[in-house]
Computed example of a mutant assay.
Amino acid sequence: MKKLNLLFFSLSLFACGSGNSESSENKNSPNASIEESIASSNPSYDPNRGVGKFTDVEVSPTLDAALASKGQGAFDVKCSSCHKTTDEKLVGPGWKGVTQRHKPAWILNFMTNTDEMINKDPAVQAQLELCLVRMPNQNLTDDEAKSLLEFMRQNDGVK
């Protein structure tokens, strides 16, 4: 049993790597290649929205500071044990730049429809192969997810 715990602990520490040795160009190219592959193999799949009820989400060009503050509270309680707001990987990937890599509908669908996205979305499955840990469903309400999206936007520099 001790060996199993040690193995799990070791995998948890090193599952996603340090994330410091890759340039930002190298981090973006696998996603682009995944999306091209998805589009060619499954023309009905839309990598801009993922799988879920959110289809075309419009966000304001300016930040809603009150909503972002609520999102930071949700992050502190439900997300910070596995994610950092930098590009550093913890258990899951860092959040820096996430709103540039994914459309708002995709982000909201992933947060509110986690299990379906993991099961059906090739981009999420590719991320799972890197991190080796399946994101648990946090049972976020739509309002919590929207506040987290606004916090992510703030984290990515939207003012």
Rank of each mutant, 00 (worst) to 15 (best):
N155A: 07
N5F: 15
E144D: 12
Q100A: 09
E150L: 06
E150H: 02
T112G: 04
G157V: 06
G17A: 11
Q127L: 11
T62V: 11
S21G: 15
S44N: 08
A145T: 05
T62C: 04
S10T: 14
P136E: 06
D156L: 01
K120P: 01
H102A: 09
S12C: 14
S44I: 09
E144F: 04
N5W: 14
Q100I: 05
P136G: 02
R49E: 07
V158H: 01
E144A: 06
D64K: 09
H102T: 03
S40C: 05
N139H: 08
L63S: 10
M152Q: 08
A74Q: 04
G19H: 10
K27S: 14
E35D: 13
D76N: 14
P93V: 05
H102Q: 06
Q127K: 13
E36K: 10
A15L: 12
Q138Y: 05
A66H: 03
S80C: 07
S10M: 13
L148M: 07
H83K: 12
K53W: 05
D56L: 13
E22I: 08
K2W: 12
N31T: 07
I38K: 04
V98F: 01
Q100E: 10
Q72M: 13
E150C: 11
N26Q: 15
W106R: 06
S12V: 15
G92H: 05
N20D: 15
L63H: 04
G71R: 02
V59G: 02
V51W: 02
P122D: 02
K89Q: 10
T62P: 00
Q100G: 13
D56F: 15
K70A: 10
F9I: 14
K53P: 02
F8D: 11
Q100H: 07
D46V: 03
H102E: 03
K120Y: 01
S23H: 09
S10F: 12
I118M: 11
V91G: 00
N28Q: 14
K70S: 12
D121Y: 00
M135D: 00
T141C: 08
T112L: 02
D87N: 14
N139P: 00
V59P: 00
M1F: 00
L67C: 11
L90V: 05
L90D: 05
H102Y: 12
L6V: 12
S12I: 15
E36F: 03
S23P: 07
E58Y: 11
N48W: 01
K27G: 00
I38W: 08
L130A: 10
A65W: 06
L6I: 13
K159E: 12
K78W: 03
K120R: 10
A39L: 01
L128H: 06
P93N: 07
G52T: 00
T112K: 04
S60K: 13
L90R: 03
C16Y: 12
W106F: 13
D87E: 14
K89S: 12
F110H: 09
E58Q: 13
G97V: 08
N42E: 09
V158M: 08
L108Y: 02
L148Q: 01
V133T: 06
K84G: 12
S10E: 10
N42G: 00
K89A: 13
A66I: 12
S41N: 02
F54N: 02
V77H: 06
D56W: 11
V91C: 03
R49W: 03
W95E: 03
P136N: 04
A65T: 15
R153K: 14
K159C: 01
S80F: 08
F14G: 13
S24P: 10
N26E: 15
C82A: 11
S69K: 15
